[in-house]
Design a protein around this nucleic acid. Sequence first.
DNA 1: CCATAACATTTTAAGCTTGCATGATTCTAA
DNA 2: TTAGAATCATGCAAGCTTAAAATGTTATGG
Lengths: 142, 142
Amino acid sequence: MTKLPEPQAIAEREVCGLVNGLAQQIADHVRGRAVALGLTAAQATALREMTGPMTMRELAERMSCEPSNTTFVIDKLEKQGLVERRAHPTDRRAKQLVLTAEGGSLREQLLELLAQDSPLGGLTPQQQRVLHDLLEQAIIRP
Amino acid sequence: MTKLPEPQAIAEREVCGLVNGLAQQIADHVRGRAVALGLTAAQATALREMTGPMTMRELAERMSCEPSNTTFVIDKLEKQGLVERRAHPTDRRAKQLVLTAEGGSLREQLLELLAQDSPLGGLTPQQQRVLHDLLEQAIIRP
DNA sequence: CCATAACATTTTAAGCTTGCATGATTCTAA
DNA sequence: TTAGAATCATGCAAGCTTAAAATGTTATGG
């Protein structure tokens, strides 16, 4: 007797596909705005997440990617003079990332561009709040 | 007078980050199961979306990626004898993708593996339904 | 009919991402 | 204290993804 496809499993697969689809929509939005500033999508994402001085690992977590990837992306931003790698004040293993003046002002412009025509425009602020809470609950924190 | 950061923009940025985070969690889940079958994450995603014969473009839409990417991924699956590219019955521009017998049975195994330990386990079925509807509304269909 | 636009796929170049190995440093428990 | 485990960043290999250009095919307006 072969196993019938379970409705619950199918529904979950569908939700996964939708999550991926929306993530793509968001990534495309970032990519579109980034080129206007001479940045790639990955560089723009890194810049967006640089809310203040932080380590490579912290940035990797904010970007939801591997630390070795941030090495690659920060290399590019550093070459453009937008970010600096400094010695971490208390941990000699770590580096402290800091935006340069130019990086800071470019980040401001980026945030303004990103705020226009939100990729979540199809949802009301209330719906976005519900979505926020569901996502937060769904994400497993290590 | 400089513009103050608007709370709504900040909230939206946070939701975008969460969507990306959950998408990563799902991708990691797929990746983990895929290696057990000798597949990469992209290959497994393609196999998962092959619900029946379809064109390259249809598959690309299901995978939320560019058509040229499916060319790359299907190349690999075809070399492994899991998928075949056939002439499309009515449109000579298009190809029709079909799973081989081996591809079909591997897909069955994959679906079983993917159904275990769902990456959406943190949500109840009811919450998953709400999430489903919100995502569907948020995604802009062309 | 025919010119032209639109479409499906592929190729190529450039850049992104992961996983693993490595070196340096810090933490922890005996 | 000190040996061993854990952590931070990086280098590298392999694979993924996109954008743009090229080819062949189909659809459409005049």
